[in-house]
Amino acid sequence: MATLHKPRNGAEWATVCVAVLLILLGLPLFIMGIQLAMIGGSFYYVLFGAALIVAGALMLTGSVNGAFLYLAAWALTWPWAFWEVGMDGWGLLPRLFGPTIIAIAVALTIPTLRRIGSPVMSSRGSMV
């Protein structure tokens, strides 16, 4: 059973912040996404919201898979966005701009998460 990783330095604290941010952004997407899907709207938001919550939770346990999950959801968002609005710049803006900035932040946590997950760190780490 995975448990929360206890951050030990600035980089790890930063990683935790990114993970918490993912969960905070994922919750409204997931909740309103369910409401939207239930009244005949798009299913994208419930899936994307769920991905953010799970990704954030995994990252909190120190798993690099959380970061990869978010990046996968972000990568899939691109073809979805073009499918929905085509080459319409204004239409693409809300769909891609924010998620891409978050993706950069998440990508930058990967080295830290890798270190947390490596055997050397695990043997020394207290929480894993």
């Binding site: 952004l25 409204p28 997407l29 309103m32 996404g33 409401q35 939207l36 009244i39 005949g40 709207g41 798009s42 938001y45 994307f48 929905e84 609005v85 204004w90 239409g91 803006l93 809300p94 769909r95 701009f97 924010g98 998620p99």
Partner: peptide, 22 residues
Amino acid sequence: KETDMWGMSPIDQLYCRLKYRR
């Protein structure tokens, strides 16, 4: 259309999609 809904981020865009569908 629902896909014409807008915002700064997916969250406020989703809010408007809900408003549209409701």
